[in-house]
């Protein structure tokens, strides 16, 4: 067959070419059709491919750490170091709550344990014990308070509205006590205003183991800075002592705050709180 013969027209040439294709490629075309049919038929494709995927998955399952471990470790470690702050911010509140809950629960268990033990052992029917059981602090309060004794470090007497210092006592001389009195009043005013609590007063400021108890009276307030655990009965005891101090040492007219007044009250506070024992 001569395709380049000058006696054949272009149409005849094309026809001859097609015939040639039929002869040479018919087998390949059939195979191609079969492959296409298999690719388009999901069942057939799955039958062919699934064993290969399964085999590869099994290989990965066995060898994942060796194959990809280092890369994944690098990615995770990079991501963690990049997002350290976010992670801390995300975890800390949850962790904090969990720890707090745990400590509270443990203290409750300890408290109940102490109460049960003491109740079992002691003679509960002696007049002395009967009296203290009804009118004194609870046994657990006594034991707990002995573990972490409360200690008064500073006492401030502050004019309620102006925040002017009426008198103060501190075991160790610290920064300007007038400024502390002013800032405490500003914090109190801010908190009371911000939370819109009407006539209610801020009663405590706490950071870590340091607490500032605020005992509010109509025209002035006490701020007692202390460390340690304080039981409800001790808190009540402290309030009573502060009221007694006020009755004995604070004049009715405190409108004009001057150094004579503050010196007099400060001396009285020092006398009263230098050897103060909250449990007495």
């Amino acid at each position: 067959m001569n395709l380049s013969s000058s006696s054949t027209s272009p149409e005849e040439e094309a026809q001859l070419l097609e015939q040639l294709r039929q002869v040479l490629l018919s087998e390949d075309r059939e195979e191609l059709e079969a492959i296409r049919a298999m690719l388009e038929d999901e069942a057939q494709l799955s039958e062919k491919v699934s064993p290969i995927i399964r085999q590869h998955l099994a290989f990965l399952k066995e060898n994942f750490r060796e194959e990809y471990g280092i890369i994944i470790e690098e990615i995770v470690s990079k991501k963690l170091s990049e997002s350290q702050d976010e992670i801390v911010n995300m975890i800390f509140p949850k962790l904090n709550t969990i720890i707090k809950k745990f400590i509270t629960a443990q203290f409750q268990i300890l408290k109940e344990g102490i109460d049960t033990q003491i109740k079992t052992v002691q003679n509960r029917f002696s007049p002395k014990n009967l009296f203290s059981r009804f009118f004194g602090p609870s046994d657990s309060d006594i034991v707990l308070s002995q573990l972490d004794n409360p200690e008064v470090h500073e006492v401030y007497l502050v004019q309620r509205e102006s925040g002017l210092l009426l008198g103060s006592y501190a075991k160790e001389k610290n920064t300007d006590q007038d400024v502390i009195a002013g800032m405490l009043t500003a914090i109190k005013s801010f908190a009371e205003d911000a939370f819109n609590r009407g006539k209610e007063d801020l009663e405590m400021i706490q950071y870590e183991n340091y607490k500032i108890f605020l005992h509010n009276l109509p025209s002035y307030y006490f701020a007692v800075a202390m460390t340690g655990s304080i039981s409800t009965s001790e808190k009540e005891n402290l309030s009573n002592k502060l009221i007694t101090f006020a009755q004995e040492n604070v004049p009715f007219d405190i409108a004009n705050v001057n150094s004579t007044l503050t010196n007099r009250i400060s001396t009285a506070l020092a006398k009263y709180f230098a050897h103060f024992n909250i449990q007495e």
Partner: peptide, 10 residues
């Protein structure tokens, strides 16, 4: 401004 800031001011 919170009103309480102005209390007791001279």
């Amino acid at each position: 401004v919170p009103t309480s800031y102005f209390l007791g001011t001279s």
